[in-house]
C-alpha cells in the first residue's frame, strides 16, 4: 500500500473525486465522474508527479443499476495498481469517452467493452463488435442478457437447439437482473 500515492491523488484531484481514495492490498482506487474522466486520465499520464504511462486494463462493468468503465494503470513510481472507476453511466444508452487518444492500445479493449456491454466509446475509430458476429443483436455480459431472448432475434432463430427461442418462465427484468450490493 502506497500511502504517498493516496495523499498525492487526494490533493491533486480533491475537486473531482466522487469518494475519497480507497486503498486495499496493493491497489489504490479513485472514482471520478464521466465528465472528468478524460482530464483525469490525461493528468495521470502526463504529470511527472504521477507518470501512469501504462494502461494495463480497461473494462466495462454492469452493476445492474448503472454502467462503469474501469481503468487499471501502472506507473514506475509506485508498486500499486491504480484503479480509476468512472461510475454512473446510463444503462439504457451507455456512452463514455475513448481512451484511444492517449493509449491506442485501448482500442480493442474498448471494442470488447462495446461488444459485451454496449458502451459506446466516443472517439474510438473502430468501434465494432470484436467477438460476437456482426449481426448479433444484444450485449452478452449485461446482467439482463438471456441467450434465448437474443436468439429469437438472430438470423439463426429456431434453427439450432442451442439457440431455440424461449425465455425462462419467470424471467422479468425485475427478477432476473442481478444487482451488485457493494460494487
Amino acid at each position: 500500500m502506497d500511502r504517498a500515492l493516496a495523499r498525492d491523488l487526494q490533493e491533486r484531484f480533491s475537486d473531482r473525486l466522487l469518494v475519497p481514495v480507497r486503498q486495499r492490498h496493493d491497489e489504490t482506487e479513485i472514482r471520478v465522474s464521466l465528465a472528468n474522466a478524460v482530464d483525469t486520465l490525461r493528468a495521470l499520464h502526463d504529470e511527472p508527479a504521477f507518470g501512469f504511462e501504462m494502461l494495463i486494463d480497461l473494462c466495462g462493468v454492469d452493476t445492474g443499476d448503472e454502467m462503469q468503465v474501469v481503468y487499471h494503470l501502472a506507473a514506475a513510481r509506485s508498486a500499486d495498481w491504480l484503479r480509476l472507476i468512472v461510475p454512473g453511466i446510463d444503462r439504457a444508452a451507455p456512452r463514455a469517452p475513448s481512451a484511444t487518444f492517449m493509449w491506442p492500445g485501448a482500442e480493442w479493449m474498448e471494442r470488447e467493452a462495446y461488444d459485451m456491454f454496449g458502451i459506446i466509446f466516443e472517439g474510438n475509430r473502430d468501434l465494432r463488435r470484436i467477438y460476437m458476429p456482426d449481426d448479433y443483436q444484444s450485449h452478452p455480459l449485461r446482467k439482463d442478457f438471456y441467450l434465448a431472448d437474443d436468439a429469437s432475434r438472430s438470423p439463426a432463430a429456431g434453427v439450432r437447439n442451442m439457440e431455440r427461442a424461449g425465455t425462462p418462465r419467470d424471467a422479468t427484468a425485475a427478477t432476473a437482473v442481478r444487482r451488485a450490493k457493494g460494487a
Binding site: 486495499r24 491497489e27 487499471h72 495498481w81 442481478r178 450490493k181
Partner: peptide, 23 residues
C-alpha cells in the same frame, strides 16, 4: 463485497483478473 485486481507476470505479459464480489 469488494473489488480486487490480481496480476501475475506470465510468459506473454501481464495476466490479470479483476474480480468484483457482491457477497
Amino acid at each position: 463485497p469488494g473489488r480486487a485486481f490480481g496480476a501475475v507476470e506470465g510468459p506473454r505479459g501481464v495476466y490479470g483478473v479483476y474480480a468484483i464480489s457482491d457477497g
